[in-house]
Design a binder for these strands. Sequence first.
DNA 1: TTGTAAGCGTTATCAA
DNA 2: TTGATAACGCTTACAA
Lengths: 338, 338
Amino acid sequence: MSTPSTAPTLDEVAQTAGVSRSTASRAINGGLRVSPEAQAAVDAAVAQLGYTPNRAARSLVTRRTDSIALVVPEPDERILTDPFLAGAMRGVSAALAGTDLQLVLLFARPDEPVNRIVRYLRSGHVDGAIVASHHREDDLEEALLASRLPAVFVGRPFASTADLVYVDVDNVEGGRIATQRLVDAGRRRIATITGPQDMTAGVDRLTGWRQALRAAGLATDAVAAGDFAVAGGAAAMERLLAEHPDLDAVFAASDLMAEGALRVLTAHGRSVPGDVAVVGFDNLGVAASTSPALTTVQNPVVEMVKTATDLLLDLVAGHVVPVRPRIFAPRLIDGASV
Amino acid sequence: MSTPSTAPTLDEVAQTAGVSRSTASRAINGGLRVSPEAQAAVDAAVAQLGYTPNRAARSLVTRRTDSIALVVPEPDERILTDPFLAGAMRGVSAALAGTDLQLVLLFARPDEPVNRIVRYLRSGHVDGAIVASHHREDDLEEALLASRLPAVFVGRPFASTADLVYVDVDNVEGGRIATQRLVDAGRRRIATITGPQDMTAGVDRLTGWRQALRAAGLATDAVAAGDFAVAGGAAAMERLLAEHPDLDAVFAASDLMAEGALRVLTAHGRSVPGDVAVVGFDNLGVAASTSPALTTVQNPVVEMVKTATDLLLDLVAGHVVPVRPRIFAPRLIDGASV
DNA sequence: TTGTAAGCGTTATCAA
DNA sequence: TTGATAACGCTTACAA
């Protein structure tokens, strides 16, 4: 009669404890309205049998899964090694530390229809979702909105912003203060290496760069497209040097790209900051370890994502959450590259 | 009567399609033994209602969840930005691409009892688990073994190896060929920067280094402990230079540590490879972008994890999988640092 | 090929 | 405080 291959059920716990299934259930879930004796008996039975509640059965009736998703675009090298994603994971993880919620990481593979992810999200596997660093063509936004699943975006979405809850750093302002720093340092030929233009962070930081230059009456034609990664930054720097050999400063929209730019500048015999000043963006570990250390803009990813998670938990709990962006202020971090 | 707030159920689909619930179920799950007409009617109903099966209900009866876990030690900066984890994710993701299985990333937080993770794994949320880069004190090994959940380890576990399925690269051999390369290049004072000694990869690579040096009759006393990360590698290099100023080569047990070492060497005015030759380990993107590019050892993480995932899927399917390690051969990659 | 009916393991309602 | 009992939404023999 001993079949240890099957996991123990609530019924067996109840039987072992000598109480009814309902009492056992109550004892296990907080122990409200259950006598000390019954509680003790159930606790003992649980320990003895090594009982673990079956989540499927539980969530079938409670309609909760006690896990939330972090949706990330594609599982490629660039995304996965970007400190932004690392920060996002740490933020979620930190926000979930107190609770007994689990984090589920979902990759929205670019080669598959977005509705695969949406189907997964809708099928009741998670109570809510945090969507990070999505691209324009994703249109996860409408799909999620339509699904009515509690969701919070990290980074301003392209569309439907009126109905979506999101957190973000003020990327325009970030680009502006980064560039202003270069202007203040007396630089006059200031280039930029942009982020992907299908992400709002890429677009906004470029806008900030432009604003600062216009305000200073400087030219805004030295632009090279990057992809937030090191190699892309290096390639962009090569192009900039070829097309604008007179440049005396560069604002790179990510520290990784700035790192690539530094290498290229060094290889071309341009000293930093002597010949060319460089400002990056993110300050997520990379900036401090380049040489020279980068002057950069603080991107408070961990705090942002922590906030996003807290918001999501509120939504999941059914609380009313005002639908307005939570915008974090960027802050200039001084390094030795300006 | 229209309550769009509740998700449509199989019953509604069946009703709309004019068939029984079982026929609807069959049509949705592969369509075996269902007439073309019924199939068409069900398909239409599904589309019209936007039906998604409730996973909890389904897995309650099938006892499958169609998702597998990737268990990673702690969500700290070091782990998250390590290309190893990125490679692992890509490997799992690639292996899962054909299937409709989902990847669930789980962090085994170090400050919490390991049985939290085990409880989660046991509670029926996933069909199996891949455990990557675990530490000695984790004792996830016994816990998982006891839980009878299908599991495959990436990286040789410390204990119970007889009963565990795992994949790994031959780290001893990797450390050996890396060091042999330095010996062959005529280096005689060869130091090493080790990985964490609570991980088998760290221990084994050090063993390989020692083997090569002993075989060559060289001293094995220039050892500095690192942590696989850049900063740790840099600190270790500083110590090595202080204690063994005569060293002419370094084997770093990871490319990230090698990168840190390169910086320190440069800062101390030691040329690479002129004064000091350097060999790293991993070749997961970092090696190619340092200057000089690193000579390193290929760590086939993506393939390894892909294999691990395939094994796991076999286990989950109930196939008999021989319990023996799958060991991948390391390969020396030539850079310009030797 | 189709439908009936019996669960899967929980939680929640309600009377005792 | 406790214990029957009825869901929750689905799959799957089994019978038709």
